[in-house]
Write a protein that binds this DNA or RNA. Structure first.
Length: 815
RNA sequence: GCCCGGGUGGCGAAAUGGGCAGACGCAGAGGACUUAAAAUCCUCUGGGAGGCGACUCCCAUGCGGGUUCGAGUCCCGCCCCGGGCACCA
């Protein structure tokens, strides 16, 4: 039978048409079957689908297909994130409504994704900018409001005076507005909505331990770091008029070395204590810090002229305002211990405050202030610390904290770096926050029955002024739900990270109009077995969604504590050393590639070129190699398909050899896919097998050819879906290949007949011998020593010992 | 500064619990087919030295030590690259 040429386009078109006729992957909850929920992180519809995205989806798709062939009920849904700011900005530039822009791009990207034959369950497609999704965002918001987990407070925000609008942190570049690079950003005090993530700080941290081994260590480390738990003590210093200034420290043991008390510029007491020209300097501090000057700005302070009393020794400490003290961390005030803290040291040296060592290294010389250079922080033995002198740092911390508690001037305390999540955006494109401001009743939540509060469509978005919603009277004017008086509707919208925090729950039940989802369905599908995405979401998205999970659990909707069992972070796809992005103009488009080589080739390349967690430098040359392999395989199969079915005879030895390699390959690929996703080595193994089949081609019998070709097709199915379907049909088999079972292997057939034993002399390979598997140590040793080459090395030397590793190696040690 | 990764041919990479370093692919060289090209197929390809030759020896996994019969893999000390956090008290 003549071979056929590989026409990737024809094959793709053919199968795409057929797949459109049948629901490809429709997963229904079925408690009788084991489930597998695999998901790639939600993309936002930028319109361009490039190889960076494609790598993410291809990995998930390969896993989904494999798991399906292993008999799992696979849920693999697909949806889109509205991603507020980029959408709104892109829309402004093009004079489009953000909604129009988003829907257009979703349509475009869906078309391309379908081309790559992803195994998504499109019946579950959701888009987070749809009213039914807003409704449940708002529903969750109200639940949190009820529980005190959502609140409003005044807070400093970035403000661009040129745009006259609030900026998100990401929009501040080098202290200036991203659109006005010469306009410094100011800080403004505005009322903002927050979700109380800090209420779950301890749980978020503690549960990280359950994710160990299942999530990449690097992600866990980042999250631990971000939550930033510190154990220490809160000690109350008092001004001479008796007013308290609590201070948080992890080093109470150094408190006898405190020679000053430092307040954050924004600290409530600052404004009161600082007078005259000092006020201007404090204001300057606040503004300069807003500009996030590249890390290093000089330490500065303003003396308040007041003193505070150290409760441990009654000492009077000067109270300063210092620009490096953070209001948001701890209590917004710190004690200055210049002898044992780098920052305090720099500050006190600059302003001439006393530097007094109170810790010496265990077993070392007493510390001397004039010798202090960089050796701070370390624990040691206390000195000059009254009743605590002579104690170890650890012991001292315990006793000093106990004393503070006993005498009522302090307590043990834990502080977190994690802050509450500011969700207010003075922007249009996001879920409206469902509350109304009533002149009589204050903040009144919109009743559940009136949800969703929808965005008005007739709005002019200019990117200037405050929220565009403020200039839509029909939206702003509302009746108070409580007293029916005229009231003002909240115009802040939610951060779109709220959307992405729970979208994977909605997938399980996307059309539910009574609840965000049916808890029963969640109980079946959750947790997500495998979540796949880029490292850039390690902190924000993955902490927010863990937080949401815990809140939903406490509301009583779900029972599990963590949403995601295993997390996989794939490496970026680089082009010319930089991440692909439209703005950089270095994208390799997914469509363009599919036009040239076919989608299968593109998929195979991103899976083959490197292990999926590594970064991948895109090389067009490598793509051609993948295409060659597929073409070669296709030709081989088509020219042998007839003979394979014929039952033709072959050479026994060739058959044995081919079967051995075949079963070894199935074993290797199966193990690779089960334990670690090194698709590159799986694919390499199939290539090796094909090379072997080429070498044996004419000598193989029909049945062996058939078995080999079928198994090759099945093994390729997770990676190259179109070609696999076509090959399956060429082999005369019925039914879609993704419905077949994963091929199995036979350990006996996979076994080599003889072992090749490496013979080393002093650890260097000098010869090889062949021996039956299971040959005894004695036999191997004897055979090795008899070997001609080894004899040569033994001449004139003394045999010291022989190390034998059965079936593998003999090492002869000589002197 | 602190916390994570990582460093192997010309390139992407393999080597899964210490046991043949460089599988598989790309690029390159030579050859076959062809009027020619493309495509395809075959052979070679880490560096060095020796031999007419089948071959033999030496060097080689960022650098320096160590453990071991044996180290890319384990331990100690450095160097370099990438990433995250960063006056977090």
């Amino acid at each position: 039978m003549p071979e056929k040429n590989y026409d990737a386009q024809r094959i793709e078109m053919k199968w795409r048409r057929r797949w459109e006729q049948i629901p490809l992957y429709r997963a229904e909850a079925n408690p009788a079957r084991p489930k597998y929920y695999v998901l790639e992180m939600l993309p936002y519809p930028s319109g361009t689908l490039h190889m960076g995205h494609l790598r993410n989806y291809t990995i998930g798709d390969a896993v989904a297909r494999y798991k399906r062939m292993r008999g799992f009920n696979v849920l693999h849904p697909m949806g889109w994130d509205a991603f507020g700011l980029p959408a709104e900005n892109a829309a402004i530039e093009r004079g489009l409504h953000p909604r129009e822009w988003t829907l257009r791009n979703i349509a475009e990207m869906t078309r391309t994704l379908r081309r790559y034959a992803f195994s998504y369950d499109w019946s579950r497609e959701i888009s987070t900018c749809e009213p039914e999704y807003y409704r449940w965002n708002q529903w969750f918001f109200l639940k949190m409001l009820e529980r005190g987990l959502a609140y409003r407070k005044k807070s400093l925000v970035n403000w661009c005076p040129e745009c006259g609008t609030v900026l998100a942190n990401e929009q501040v570049v080098d202290g200036c507005c991203w659109r006005h690079p010469r306009t410094p950003v100011e800080q403004r005090d505005l009322e903002q909505w927050f979700l109380k993530t800090t209420a779950y700080a301890e749980q978020l941290l503690a549960d990280i331990r359950r994710l160990e081994g299942l999530w990449p260590e690097r992600v866990l480390a980042m999250q631990r770091n971000w939550i930033g738990r510190s154990e220490g003590a809160e000690i109350v210093f008092r001004l001479e008029d008796g007013r308290p200034i609590p201070v948080f420290t992890t080093r109470v043991d150094t408190i006898f070395g405190a020679t000053g008390l430092l307040l954050a510029p924004e600290h409530p007491l600052t404004a009161e204590l600082v007078e005259g020209e000092g006020r201007l300097r404090v204001k300057a501090m606040i503004d300069s810090r807003a500009q996030k000057q590249l890390a290093e700005f000089d330490k500065e302070g303003v003396f308040t002229g007041r003193y505070a009393v150290n409760p441990y020794n009654g000492e009077r400490l000067p109270v300063w305002v210092a620009n490096f003290v953070l209001l948001e961390y701890g209590t917004g005030a710190v004690m200055a211990v210049p002898a044992h803290d780098q920052r305090d040291f720099e500050f006190c040296r600059k302003y001439g405050l006393e530097i007094r060592p109170v810790i010496r290294p265990a077993g070392g010389e007493p510390a001397r202030a004039d010798l202090l250079e960089e050796a701070f922080v370390e624990d040691g033995v206390l000195e000059n610390s009254g009743e605590f002198s002579g104690l170890s740092s650890e012991e001292a911390r315990r006793r000093m904290t106990a004393k503070a508690e006993r005498e009522g001037f302090g307590r043990a305390a834990v502080t977190y770096r994690l802050k509450d999540w500011g969700i207010s955006r003075q922007r249009y494109w996001g879920t409206p926050i469902p509350v109304v401001h009533c002149p009589q009743c204050g903040i009144v939540p919109v009743p559940e029955s009136e949800l969703p509060v929808l965005l008005p469509l007739n709005v002019r978005i200019t990117g200037r002024g405050r929220s565009p919603l403020e200039s839509v009277p029909e939206f702003v004017q509302a009746a108070c739900p409580r007293c029916a008086a005229p009231a003002r509707r909240e115009t802040d919208t939610m951060d779109t990270f709220v959307d992405s925090s729970w979208y994977f729950y909605r997938y399980c039940d996307p059309r539910n109009d009574r609840l965000p989802y049916d808890p029963e369905l969640i109980a079946y599908w959750f947790p997500i077995d495998q979540y796949i995405g880029g490292i850039e979401h390690a902190i924000l998205h993955l902490i927010y969604s863990r937080f949401f999970c815990k809140v939903m659990r406490d509301i009583g909707l779900i029972r599990h504590d963590e949403p995601v069992r295993s997390l996989f972070t794939q490496g970026m796809v680089l082009k010319d050393g930089a991440a692909m992005s439209k703005s950089r103009g270095n994208v390799v488009g997914a469509d363009e590639l599919a036009d040239r080589y076919g989608a299968d080739t593109g998929r195979l390349f991103v899976l083959f070129a490197a292990p999926p967690e590594k970064e991948l430098e895109w090389q067009d040359a490598g793509v051609e190699g993948m295409h060659r392999f597929l073409a070669r395989t296709y030709r081989f199969l088509t020219r042998n398909a007839e003979r394979a079915r014929s039952g033709a005879a072959g050479e026994a030895e060739a058959d044995r050899q081919a079967l051995r390699k075949l079963h070894q390959t199935v074993r290797k690929v199966t193990q690779d896919l089960e334990s670690r996703w090194h698709f590159n080595t799986s694919i390499a193994a199939v290539m090796e097998l094909m090379n072997e089949l080429h070498a044996l081609e004419e000598r193989l019998s029909g049945p062996v050819l058939q078995e080999a070709l079928e198994k090759v097709t099945l093994m390729l199915a997770p990676f190259v879906p179109y070609l696999a379907e076509e090959l399956w049909e060429e082999l005369g088999r019925q039914g879609p290949v993704f419905d077949q079972s994963w091929p199995d292997y036979d350990q006996e057939l996979a076994r080599e007949e003889e072992a090749e034993i490496v013979v080393q002399v002093n650890g260097r390979v000098r010869s090889r011998i062949r021996a039956a598997f299971g040959a005894s140590r004695e036999e191997l040793e004897r055979r090795a020593l008899e070997d001609d080459k080894i004899q040569g090395f033994l001449k004139g030397r003394q045999l010291v010992k022989v190390v034998v590793v059965p079936d593998k190696l003999v090492n002869v040690v000589v002197r």
